[in-house]
C-alpha cells in the first residue's frame, strides 16, 4: 500500500486514541482536584501538564483545560487531536470506508462550542466518539495492512498514555489508585479481578502487565508487536539486509521483557523513571516505523531541497 496512506492511518489511530486518553486523564484529575480539597492547584496542574509533555508558565485549572482540551492552537488538546485525525483521514479518504470517515468528520464538526459548564459531559462525549470510531472501524474495514497500521498507532499511543496515567499516581497525595484506574477505564475491571484489594503492587501489576486488559501497557506493546510482525517483510531485503522495522520489534520486545522480568517492587521504587522508559520506547519505535515504512527519506529530501 502507499506509504502516505499508511502514515495517515497510523496517525489517525494515534490521535483518536490520544483524544480519548486525554479526555479520561482530564476527567479523573479535574474530579480529583475538586474531590481532594487539600491539593495545591498550581502544583498539581503544572505536574499534570509536564506529564503530558506541555509546558506552562502559570499552571492552573483553566490552563490545564485550555492546553489539553479546548485550545485549537495547543497541539496537545483534544480538539487538536480530532483536527489532526480528520486532516489525516481526508488524505486517506479513498481507503477509509465512508462510515468511518463520517464518524471522524462529524466529530470534528460537532465539537461543542460552549464547554464551560458542560465540562464532564464534554469528556464523556469525547470518549464516546473515540469508542464509536473504534467500533465502526473494526466492523467495516478490511483487516489488511492498512488496518494493521491503524491499530498499531492506536496500541502504541495506548501504551504511551497508560504509562503517563500511571506516572500521575506518584503525584497524588491521597490513595491515587481509584483515579488512575478510572483514568484507564480499569476501575471496575480491576475491582472484580482483585476483589477490591487496592495495593500499589496489585494495581501496577494490572495496569502494566495484564495481557487480558485492553488498556494495560503490556496489551498495547503486544498489539504493536503483532501488527509489526504482520506488516514487516519476513525475509531479508534483496540486498541481504534485515528490514529496518526489525529494530522497532527489538525495542518493543526489550521493553516487554524489562517490564515482565523486573521484580515489581523494583519497578514501583522508580515508577516514574520506568514509565518514562516506556514513553521513550514508544517514541523511538514511532521514529523507526516512520523511517522504515512512511518516509522514503531520500525522496522527501529531494523535494524539499528544491523548495527551500
Amino acid at each position: 500500500m502507499l506509504s502516505r496512506i499508511a502514515e495517515s492511518l497510523f496517525w489517525i489511530g494515534r490521535y483518536i486514541e490520544r483524544a480519548e486518553a486525554t479526555a479520561r486523564f482530564l476527567d479523573v484529575h479535574l474530579r480529583l482536584l475538586v474531590e481532594d480539597p487539600w491539593t495545591s492547584e498550581p502544583d498539581a496542574c503544572g505536574d499534570l501538564l509536564s506529564l503530558m509533555g506541555v509546558q506552562s508558565d502559570e499552571p492552573s485549572r483553566d490552563e490545564l483545560i485550555r492546553l489539553l482540551s479546548d485550545d485549537p492552537a495547543s497541539p496537545a488538546s483534544i480538539v487538536s487531536c480530532w483536527r489532526y485525525a480528520r486532516d489525516n483521514a481526508r488524505r486517506a479518504r479513498e481507503v477509509i470506508p465512508s462510515e468511518v470517515w463520517e464518524v471522524i468528520n462529524t466529530t470534528w464538526h460537532q465539537v461543542p462550542v460552549d464547554r464551560r459548564d458542560r465540562r464532564i459531559s464534554f469528556f464523556e462525549w469525547a470518549r464516546g466518539r473515540s469508542a464509536l470510531f473504534s467500533g465502526t472501524a473494526r466492523g467495516s474495514m478490511v483487516h489488511d495492512d492498512g488496518w494493521q497500521f491503524l491499530i498499531m498507532g492506536r496500541h502504541l499511543e495506548q501504551a504511551d498514555m497508560t504509562s503517563r496515567l500511571v506516572a500521575a499516581s506518584t503525584l497524588v497525595e491521597t490513595n491515587p489508585w481509584p483515579a488512575v484506574l478510572r483514568g484507564c477505564g480499569a476501575h471496575d475491571a480491576f475491582l472484580r479481578m482483585y476483589r477490591g484489594v487496592q495495593a500499589d503492587r496489585e494495581v501496577a501489576e494490572f495496569l502494566l502487565l495484564d495481557q487480558r486488559f485492553p488498556r494495560s501497557i503490556m496489551y498495547g506493546l503486544d498489539g504493536v508487536e503483532r501488527s509489526l510482525e504482520m506488516i514487516t517483510p519476513a525475509r531479508h531485503t534483496a540486498a541481504g539486509r534485515r528490514h529496518e522495522a526489525h529494530d522497532a520489534l527489538q525495542l518493543i520486545g526489550k521493553m516487554r521483557a524489562e517490564l515482565t522480568y523486573t521484580p515489581m517492587p523494583e519497578i514501583l521504587e522508580q515508577l516514574n523513571e520506568r514509565m518514562a522508559d516506556v514513553q521513550s520506547t514508544c517514541d523511538a519505535a514511532t521514529k523507526i516505523i516512520s523511517s522504515s515504512f512512511f518516509s522514503v527519506d531520500d525522496l522527501t529530501a529531494w523535494t524539499t531541497e528544491g523548495t527551500r
Binding site: S50, L51, V54, T170, A276
Partner: peptide
Amino acid sequence: LPDNLVAPS
C-alpha cells in the same frame, strides 16, 4: 517528576 520526561510523539 523525573527529568527524562518524553512528550507524546
